[in-house]
Design a protein around this nucleic acid. Structure first.
Length: 397
DNA sequence: TCTGGGGTCCTAGGACCC
DNA sequence: TCTGGGGTCCTAGGACCC
């Protein structure tokens, strides 16, 4: 099941003035992109990922609507709960996409499709598309071809014929780079890839090559995975309201980002030991460096101090457009604040105070003073990767 | 006025260990 | 003097996804 232009459809359903109009859902910050756009907007060539200026150029009467994360995750959760009444075998793939294993469900796929579509339309006034197939790849590809409000079923045995209808770049898992690389080799269709052969594909791409070969044969190895995959990293990045030119300005934002990352880690009981900093300059060139520290932590000051060490190692003094901080090598179920490394044990009390205050009154109600030097505080973006609960639940101020 | 934000997986080379 | 074989961990970077 795949929602149709999910964020945009939700906005249109809740505001009659937007119905039938070309709209684009964007972040609320100045430098932002179209995250989702309505089908009316797509007719004009508006696409996901376009800057708002570019989108307005191709469609001058486009209505830009700042995204409302809480609303989307709430609806997403209601829909997931409904899907779970059909079968417990539901894989929540993203905020607007889910796989259902209906092998053991007594209803036909036509009936199930009708039930889901009716539920979504009746409760939220929006549409979704459904695809049916013998594996996740086929079902996913099938869900896309009759959009919006689509339904398409691929009968068992028809998988190869079905996959042969697609260009390589339209296959799940083949992105722009890979498509171009194949095209340069004279490979344009799934059939060409099969003829190229599994061995050569594996030599070229390693394990992904053999997966890809299976895929163009209409096969897919992994089944519907009902349990939440473990969280591997927690990160935040921010395109700055204005470019930064010196270390002190950067330090303010890096403290803020460190606090966002560690607060989310603490909230969800994770501690990690690999800390990574990402700097994107005004030419859109990126540098990234990570450092593993000798202990697990979810303390803002540990993350911040490590981030600043990295910053001093990698910043080439070019103006900064965006900064990102993330923590990985996580252990679940552990909140670690001060360590034997910290002479000052008041950190424990400080984080307890910060977390309980912000838990009650919202992120950054209580924080470090120099965060106030930042023109933008807190997450204001909107991301389809966000989820209704757990560590992937991101609060937007 | 140029392209957000949050993730995962894979690879290859180097350090280090037995 | 003369460097095999097996392993883990760390790190940068690429590619992909929603």
């Amino acid at each position: 099941m795949d929602m149709d232009a999910f964020f945009a459809s939700v906005e249109q359903a809740s505001n009659p003035a937007l119905k039938g109009q070309p709209i684009g859902v964007i972040g609320s910050q100045e430098r932002t992109v179209v995250v989702t756009c309505s089908y009316e907007a797509r007719k004009f060539g508006v696409r996901t990922g376009m800057s708002k200026y570019e989108a307005l150029r191709v469609c001058p009467h486009l209505k830009l609507v700042p995204g409302r994360n809480r609303k989307y995750t709430y609806i997403s959760k209601q829909i997931t709960d409904y899907l779970l009444t059909i079968t417990p075998d539901v894989e929540v793939y993203s905020v607007d996409e889910a796989f259902l294993d209906i092998s053991d469900v007594l209803n036909t796929s036509d009936e199930i499709s009708y039930m889901i579509k009716s539920f979504v339309k009746k409760n939220f006034g929006i549409t979704c598309s459904l695809g049916v197939g013998s594996n996740k790849l086929i079902a996913k590809m099938a869900s896309g071809i009759k959009k919006p409000d689509g339904y398409y079923k691929v009968e068992s045995g028809d998988e190869i014929d079905f996959i042969d209808r697609f260009k390589l770049g339209d296959i799940w898992g083949i992105g722009r780079r890979l498509e171009k690389r194949f095209n340069n080799m004279g490979i344009f269709k799934p059939k060409d890839l099969r003829e190229f052969g599994e061995d050569k594909l594996t030599d070229m791409l390693g394990i992904n090559g053999s997966h890809l070969y299976r895929m163009v044969c209409g096969e897919y190895l992994s089944g519907v995975n009902t349990d939440d995959p473990p969280v591997k990293s927690i990160g935040h990045s921010m395109t700055l309201p204005t470019n930064l030119y010196n270390r002190e300005q950067a330090a303010n934002y890096l403290l803020q980002l460190s606090e966002m990352v560690s607060a989310r880690a603490r909230k969800n009981s994770y501690a990690g030991k690999t800390i990574s900093l990402h700097i994107r300059d005004i030419e859109l060139q990126s540098v990234r460096k990570m450092k593993t520290i000798p202990f697990f932590t979810s303390a803002t000051h540990h993350i911040y101090e490590t981030v600043m060490e990295i910053f001093d190692e990698i910043w080439e003094k070019r103006p900064i457009r965006a900064l990102g901080v993330s923590i990985s090598k996580l252990v679940p179920g552990l909140i670690q604040l001060s360590t034997t490394m910290d002479a000052d044990k008041r950190w424990d009390d400080i984080y307890k105070a910060i977390d309980s205050m912000n838990g009650k009154y919202g992120d950054f109600t209580l924080s470090f003073g120099s965060v106030l030097n930042c023109k933008r505080i807190g997450s204001r973006g909107i991301s389809p990767a966000w989820r209704p609960k757990g560590a992937r639940d991101v609060d937007v101020l």
